[in-house]
């Protein structure tokens, strides 16, 4: 991601700002000029929050050189307040993951551009403190 693109998207990335469609009433992430469901341009910014659950995940062992320190990288399909998004799962080893477990957002480093470049921060998700179990609660 370029410096300019990350800067333009910093609110989306830091605070999970997505889009709500005034026409069809649906909310989605990331932010867009038109509704991804009905195509309407009558959209507004919306904070994506609420209960988060892990719907599915993939464990990536063969990673790029840049991600070697974090390997294995866990990519999760997460539902947050009714919105589905793909994000990194952190503070968890593969053995700790369970479909349906409760998650919570955290701000983390997502990439670093070399020794002299910019550090990019964004929201990832981790198992909820106090238990990330999938029990009815």
């Amino acid at each position: 991601m370029s410096i300019a693109r990350h800067w333009r998207r910093r609110h989306n990335l830091y605070r999970l700002i997505g889009t709500r469609c005034r026409s069809c009433g649906r909310t989605f992430y990331p932010q867009a000029q038109r509704c991804i469901y009905c195509g309407s341009s009558d959209v507004e910014q919306a904070r994506i929050d609420g209960e988060a659950r892990l719907l599915s995940y993939s464990i990536v062992y063969s990673v790029t050189d840049e991600a070697r320190y974090e390997a294995p990288v866990i990519l999760g399909l997460v539902e947050v307040g009714g919105v589905k998004l793909i994000t990194e799962i952190t503070d968890a080893s593969p053995g700790e993951l369970e479909v349906g477990m409760r998650l919570e957002p955290v701000l983390r480093k997502v990439s670093i551009h070399g020794e002299s470049g910019l550090i990019y921060y964004a929201v990832k998700f981790r198992p909820a403190m106090g238990g990330g179990g999938s029990g009815e609660d």
Partner: peptide, 13 residues
């Protein structure tokens, strides 16, 4: 700190 943490992310939380 974990590999994706630094003083900024910890201070944020």
């Amino acid at each position: 700190a974990g590999p994706d943490e630094d003083s900024t992310t910890m201070g944020y939380e």
